[in-house]
Design a protein around this nucleic acid. Structure first.
Lengths: 136, 136
DNA sequence: CTAGAAGTTAAAGTCAGCTTTAAGTCATGC
DNA sequence: GCATGACTTAAAGCTGACTTTAACTTCTAG
């Protein structure tokens, strides 16, 4: 499979696939006359990578756990550690978003004369500090 | 108030405050010998800006609704429109995060031989497409 | 008066995850 | 045998919200 076909099948840009190879999340495949030729299972590899990035893993994290992953190695402790850490992050993100949602709703339904007042009415220092804990 | 004190009080970096001025979310204050002197209510202004960015508004959006905001103008329709739009985004973010959470938990508790299998077992094409709708 | 802290500017750097560009080489169909 | 499309590389560009740097000026305490 040439890079164009892999790109079409994974719905990625060919440049993205080259980028993955460059930063080491995808292993460089065989070349024929300088061009990349991918084995069929590269498709699954790329999907796994996209899947993981969609789950919020960074490419650096993905590289980390893929590097220890033999072809059909069992789901290892390294992955579990990463997944647990990510789960925590996701939970924090949910909590933050719920807080934002209620704040937004309050602001939308309030009858303050100005936004400034409105924000002050929420008790700026407390609320701001609450939010700051969630800063990314 | 000089920029250093404003920075200390808002817990921002002075460079951030200058940056806000440069991109036009903060109005340039009086100068004394070339140095910025802020009136007391600049503190509230900066808090409002931080508050808004914490809520997920971009600085461009904040500039937009601050520019139409006279000193004590009522909470206007422009702000309401922006807030409603942001509320939608937050809801989508929550839905996405909840989906990610359950996927992560499934992956953590599964007994598949390999991650590849595990992802395939989730029904890659469907699940991946589901996630793609949430891609940012 | 002077050291040093704090202020000033424009421009470049940072992070992630790519895309775009430029300048070429290879493969394929007619 | 050649036009065209697909491929190659390294390097630069993009977004957003800043920070850092360099080279300077101004303020303040002793």
């Amino acid at each position: 499979m040439k890079i164009g076909e892999l790109a079409r099948r994974t719905k990625l840009n060919a440049s993205a696939i080259r980028y993955y190879e460059k930063i080491g999340v995808l292993v460089a495949p065989q070349r024929v006359g300088g061009q990349r030729r991918y084995p069929t299972d590269s498709f699954d590899r790329v999907l796994l990578i996209r899947f993981a990035t969609d789950m919020g893993f960074t490419l650096a994290e993905i590289k980390l756990f893929l590097s220890g992953l033999r072809d059909n190695a069992p789901v290892g402790p390294r992955w579990k550690r990463l997944a647990n850490r990510k789960l925590l992050e996701v939970d924090q993100n949910i909590a933050r978003s719920l807080k934002l949602k209620s704040l937004l709703q309050n602001l939308l339904h309030c009858r303050c004369a100005s936004l400034q007042q409105c924000v002050r009415a929420l008790g700026p220092s407390e609320n701001l500090r609450l939010l700051q804990n969630f800063r990314r």
